[in-house]
Design a protein around this nucleic acid. Structure first.
Length: 567
RNA sequence: GGGCCGCUAGCUCAACGGUAGAGCAGCAGACUUUUAAUCUGCGGGUUCAGGGUUCGAGCCCCUGGCGGCCCA
């Protein structure tokens, strides 16, 4: 990409005139920027004086997995771009915590089945939780992850909204327009009775009360008076009752009505949704036909986003256990890297997040990109994604002062088995011209690499240093091999540094062949070096390969090395 | 059966309707660092196919193919 484009981008004046000079204006051609253009134009057309509203919705019915993060990251990135341009913008996060508890997930006490049908905020949290109810228990880790990711939003609890009566006008409106709503829904209904949106022989009612006796939603509305707003319901528990809907607080609109109601209530201009919402008869399509005639207003700009996978896994489902969450991802990678994954791909593009060895390559790519950005040699799109990953309108996210390559850190953690003194000794010698004085300079990346090694690296790929010498192998060695080991052992102490040991391990085969230290490598020497290294790996870690020998030797310690090589 | 999305270099992906580009892989050279090493350089394309609109199409329209997914 030409430098002209970059220069133009950098020299573009800050729209609000107060952004500091270090904030590089993000490219105007990436997908985030294009959505921001569209959203700003649409918001201006609707009502130029209102803050621009972007929205996300999450159901805290169980662990919130990495795929659901896209529901938040997509509006976040767009809202952040809108803020960068100096507009007032709100990112709403609707917690669907007034939804019914549908089923007891695996691993939960089966007695929780008695709560099925209650609002998620009325279900006790899983045993041992510090949180007051089911919804809060699953909201908390997501909220913590979003904070770490620098996502700014305004949380909205649907329980709070419904039970406070905030939506009463809209609920009454939906009830009086129930026939019109039913007509829309009927267009997509093919079977009788399977729709969970409240179609019954007695008539369609978009409102479902939670039973005042058992708290569950096993209720059926059997009558409604538009004049008095008196509503009659029967519950599966046997309870039956007449309530005044205008004053009723324990109930909610059917999802396909609830969603457009909120679009209208909040004035949402941008809210993406998953691919499952794009089919005919889906919530988004139906909602778009309901909002105008029933609530007044227009549906938001609502791109669909594709699924996010984990490398090695197909797609994620929160109904299955053991699915990685944003917190899991943040334990093995820094926040900017995770942000980058969501920023660099358009929403309709599926991608995978690496929990396996691929993460090392990903980090290499990230470091290379960062270097290009520092020298203004990155392409416009790459620079844009990098900018969105590393900072928000509010400021920069925390970074690692000395970004040692992830694969190196992982290797160090692996070899040292968590011994920080050894790790520091190795890290300090990595770059003698700019020595690292404290492991803290390599954090938080070091901590992420450590977590990756401990939780993701398969046991068979871990390096385990032998406790005892391989006496069988030692006994089988020839004279030359014994001599090479003796030469190594003799030089350990005076060469005990990364460069020193490097010279030593390459030098031993030379001396054995009678070659000078500064000899050019011949094929014969290369072969001898390779064989020597393989021998050492076998003696030290029981395999024919491993981490670079100088690193490995430093980590093992001279005494143990001498013990393992039988000298 | 209905619908959504995608198809661009070997792979993963860029490219307001205006000369198709990156990363990785590959190849060549360099290198006294092996484990997926590092540095420099180079090559790499019928943009799934066919038709249409346009001065101009990877991009817009139509038809078909293949792939992924949703609903039924």
């Amino acid at each position: 990409m030409s430098a002209a484009v970059i220069d133009e981008r950098i020299s573009a004046p800050a729209p609000d005139g107060k952004a500091d000079a270090s904030v590089v204006q993000v490219s105007e051609s990436d997908w985030v920027s294009r959505f921001a253009d569209e959203v700003i134009a649409e918001a201006r057309r609707r009502d130029p004086d209102r803050p621009i509203v972007c929205a996300s919705g999450l159901s805290p019915s169980g662990p919130i997995h990495l795929g659901n993060l896209r529901e938040v990251m997509t509006p976040h990135l767009v809202a952040d771009e809108i803020r960068r341009r100096g507009h007032d913008c709100v990112h709403l996060l609707s917690w669907d915590d007034f939804d019914r508890f549908r089923k007891v997930p695996a691993g939960i006490d089966p007695s929780w089945a008695e709560h099925i049908g209650k609002p998620l905020t009325s279900v006790p949290a899983p045993a041992g939780s510090e949180h007051p109810n089911w919804a809060e228990h699953f909201k908390a880790p997501m909220a913590a992850a979003l904070a770490e990711l620098g996502v700014e939003y305004r949380p909205v609890s649907q329980t709070q909204m419904y039970t406070s009566g905030a939506y009463t006008r809209q609920v009454l409106r939906a009830m009086s327009e129930r026939e019109r709503i039913d007509a829309v829904l009927r267009r997509y209904r093919t079977k009788e009775g399977v729709d969970d949106d409240g179609s019954v022989a007695a008539g369609y009612y978009p409102y479902r009360p939670y039973c005042s006796q058992c708290e569950r939603d096993l209720t059926t509305v059997t009558g409604y008076d538009d004049e008095t707003t008196e509503l009659v319901y029967e519950c599966g528990c046997g309870h039956s009752e007449t309530v005044v809907l205008a004053e009723h607080r324990q109930g909610k609109l059917a999802w396909k009505v609830d969603w457009p109601m909120r679009w209208a209530y909040e004035g949402v201009v941008f809210e993406p949704s998953g691919v499952d919402h794009t089919s005919p008869g889906s919530s988004f399509v139906v909602g778009g036909q309901i909002i105008g005639p029933v609530f007044g207003g227009e549906p938001p700009i609502g791109p669909m986003y594709a699924f996010v996978g984990i490398s090695g896994m197909a797609k994620m489902s929160s109904s299955r256990g053991g699915v990685p969450t944003p917190a899991d991802a943040l334990s093995i990678m820094e926040a900017p890297l995770l942000r980058w994954l969501y920023a660099r791909r358009r929403p309709n593009q599926a991608f995978t997040i690496a929990f396996d060895l691929q993460i090392q390559r990903l980090y290499d790519e990230w470091d290379a990109l960062s270097a290009k950005v520092d020298t203004s040699t990155a392409t416009a799109a790459d620079a844009a994604a990098h900018g969105r990953a590393t900072r928000t309108a509010r400021g920069a996210l925390p970074t690692t002062a000395r970004p040692v390559p992830y694969r190196t850190l992982a290797s160090i953690v692996d070899v040292t088995a968590g011994d920080e003194d050894q790790a520091l000794r190795i890290v300090r010698d990595l770059d003698p011209s700019r020595p690292i004085g404290s492991l803290d300079e390599t954090r938080p990346r070091l901590d992420r690499a450590r977590a990756w090694v401990l939780t993701q690296l398969p046991a068979e790929q871990r390096t385990r240093v032998r406790d005892e010498p391989d006496t069988g192998l030692l006994a089988s060695l020839g004279d030359d091999e014994r001599e090479s080991l003796r030469l190594l052992a003799a030089g350990l102490d005076e060469n005990w540094s990364l460069p020193g040991l490097t010279t030593l391990v390459y030098g031993v085969p030379k001396r054995l062949l009678g070659l000078p230290e500064d000899v050019k490598p011949t094929p014969e020497l290369r072969a001898a070096q390779r064989a020597f290294f393989a021998l050492l790996y076998h003696l030290l870690v029981g395999r024919d390969t491993g981490p670079r020998l100088p690193t490995l030797l430093l980590a093992i310690g001279a005494d143990q090395v001498r013990k393992l090589i039988g000298t």
